[in-house]
Computed example of a mutant assay.
Amino acid sequence: MKLSKIQELLQMVAESGVAEVEVEEDDFKITIRQNGPTVMMQPSYSPPMHGYGMPQQPQYAPQPQQPQAPQPQQPAPAPETSAPAASPSTSDSAPAPDTDAEDDDGELGANEILVKAPIVGTFYRAPSPDSDPFIAEGDRVGEGDVLCIIEAMKLMNEIECETPGVIKEILVEDAEPVEFDQPLFIVDQS
């Protein structure tokens, strides 16, 4: 369809007061609406859109999710406010870790060392619920002896003794969750 014909159609629609006119010629189709500023032109046959055309448009629609991202950040200050609430319970936040370190040093004798958890997981004293524990308080252990198992993500990790000595104290209960670097045993090296 030529531009002159389209202009004639526009003028006729404007003069007649008709709300909408649709004209179709061969492989060309035009719709003219009186009440809107939009003139839509499209071929009468449009091949189906496969793959990239249609699915991508809805994927760009999640722009309203961007305002939702700051909302999770607003709850984040709530834990921050709970952190100061936890620090008054320990009196001063900075001296509390120093006090803990002093307590560890104060508890340990000259020949004693702490065996700490190398990973996060669940502490087990025995290889299975039916078995005897690997060690007990007062047992003498050598370098490479298995002290316990820490289960992490369904993997059983054997924790071995690095220095020989006597188990003075077991600091964790069986099947208790442990954190990285949490003290597990006190070993007397004398």
Rank of each mutant, 00 (worst) to 15 (best):
K2H: 11
Q7F: 03
E8H: 05
Q11F: 02
M12D: 15
A14S: 14
A19V: 10
A19Y: 05
A19P: 05
D26S: 07
D27A: 13
T31W: 00
T31K: 15
Q34H: 14
G36W: 01
V39L: 15
M40T: 13
Y45M: 06
S46Y: 06
P47A: 15
P47L: 14
H50E: 10
G51T: 10
Y52R: 14
M54C: 01
M54V: 12
Q56C: 08
P58V: 09
Q59L: 11
Y60S: 11
Y60N: 12
P62K: 03
Q63M: 14
P67Y: 11
Q68R: 08
A69H: 10
Q73Y: 00
Q74F: 04
A78Y: 08
E80A: 14
E80K: 09
A85P: 04
A86H: 03
P88Y: 09
P88M: 05
S89E: 15
S91R: 12
A94H: 09
T99M: 12
D100R: 14
E102W: 06
G109D: 00
G109T: 04
E112H: 03
K116V: 14
A117T: 14
P118V: 05
V120N: 11
T122S: 12
T122I: 13
S128P: 09
D130G: 02
P133V: 10
F134V: 11
D139N: 12
D139W: 08
G142R: 02
C148E: 01
C148N: 00
C148A: 07
I150N: 02
I150E: 03
E151F: 07
N157Q: 10
E160L: 10
E162P: 00
P164L: 03
P164E: 14
G165C: 04
P177F: 08
F185T: 08
I186K: 09
V187M: 04
